[in-house]
Design a protein around this nucleic acid. Sequence first.
DNA 1: AGGTCGGCCTGGCAGC
DNA 2: TGCTGCCAGGCCGACC
Length: 297
Amino acid sequence: MPELPEVETIRRQLEPDLVGRRFDRVEVLDHYFSKPSSASGFEQAATGREVTDVGRRGKYLLIEFADGEAMVIHLRMTGNLVLVDPEGHTGPGDARIYRQDDGTRHLKARFHLDDGGELRFTDPRRFGRGFIAGPEELDTYFAARLGPEPLSEGFTAEALATASEGRTAPLKSFLLDQKAVAGIGNIYADEALHRASLHPLSPAGSMKPDHQSALRDGIVAALERGLDLGGASIDDYRDARGESGQMQDEFLVHRREGRPCPRCGEAITRIVVGGRSTYFCGSCQSRLRRRPRRKKA
DNA sequence: AGGTCGGCCTGGCAGC
DNA sequence: TGCTGCCAGGCCGACC
């Protein structure tokens, strides 16, 4: 599941190969990709555009054009962008580590570049979306959906304090709210809470300043570790060269039910919070009290 | 208005 | 072996 570190990894790989390139021909093979726009409408809007920059906001990838418009792509669960060089290769080096299908399986959209290369969007689950919008529309769109960028300087304990003030939702749900902090998903929410020693069921608004500070640091550390390792590859995620990330080998708690907590050795617990699998150490993630339990009848 | 839940999707896998 | 049914979860819309 691509979250901030995975999307940023792809962004960094696409940037040098896409900037200065033009989309000679664009094919939308599945109209779900461009929904609610039609496939032909999207193709027309993207064709002939020259890429001037590749950006990111939260989990959204921004392929920017000279006039300030941008193609916005969200990979959702299983979306994937694969870069194909002019010789038809999906990446350098040992072919065994690349996806076996070279990005043609579940192919939903392809962008033919003016140097003979190609950008391919694949997505088995059909959740991923792309659209093209102008600068004002983009501002409005992101302002309505996204909170602060956690790897920017403005992301401080105070910013977290403001966002969590008065919120009764559990910390886990709070972290998954893109309006609270942009770019965190199920993996990095669990990892950040463990690093901060905070219980996932603690009400977000009950944090004291030292908790907010610990959570801020935990979020940044978890995301930066993910970035350093090229993201986490649990199921479908591959980077733009088709390679897997390594972060899944260093999860502290996520998907580690029953295994020892790397900090205290206690068995890791799995619960469901807001419909999402949540992994934590019941022994050392208790800096805040969990919500009071209902009394037995 | 914030919180919660179900729906969108399909591949993979457990269980029979 | 092959079928059924459930699970995964980012985001959105409905509802309280």
